[in-house]
Amino acid sequence: MNSILLAVIIVVIIGLIVGVVLAVASVLMAVPVDEKAAEIQEQLPGANCGACGFSGCSGYAAALSKGEAELGLCSVGGQAVIDAIAPIIGAEAVASVPKTAVVHCNGNDDNTSKVTRYQGIQSCMAATQLYGGMGECSYGCIGFGDCMAACEYGAIEVCNGVAIVKPDVCRACGKCVKACPKKLITIEPKKERAIVKCSNCDKGALTRKACKVGCIGCMKCVKTCEHDAVKVVNFHAVVDPEKCVGCGKCAEQCPQKIIFMA
């Protein structure tokens, strides 16, 4: 017989046997695919940002379909995603509280000054390695925009040397929070509330020297607040956005004018 033909036949027969065995095995040992999870994953935005606390959209979808996760953890998708997923897992759609990132520093070039000249890599992370940055205030925004680079939605801009979040564009994925070497950014619910734009941990006198708009820890806001929402931690005021009702009294009292209403 033609040896080429025989070679082809041998390979084909071996291939066929392997194929048949595999086909039989896949039928005998079929594993039901979790269709619910696949359906949920289609509805998720696919940003894989990890804001929900799972490894990615597929992880959140799997946890949702098993009932191990709550609705509304996806801050990127927001209400639209909740409404789309709720019927799939047979749950009531919950109202999501939209969130946004907030930069707790207002030390722009008008309010504070630089003490060193930095000529290295234009990155906050790199600049922080060198004596904690160039600014007079060692807790403030560096202004090279690591957060801006991390943001996938263009929601952060560095304006006059300090990062500013646009709440309308922000999807609260939390990437800027991780990118900021000074840990100035937090994720807060988007509602009427007070925002302290300072994170300085030095005592009042030192803070006042470093920045015109630094929190001096005078406790006026703490005394004014009727809802126990403001505390002074590490010599600067911190507002608990959950407790804050947005009355604005602390902002009126603040001698440094560093509490803003949003």
């Binding site: 390979v11 071996i14 291939g15 392997v18 194929g19 065995v21 595999l22 095995a25 896949s26 040992m29 594993v31």
Partner: peptide, 16 residues
Amino acid sequence: LVIAGLVQLVEIVLRK
């Protein structure tokens, strides 16, 4: 060919 088939088989068995 044979190894690929075997690996597929092991994969199916493991998944199950």
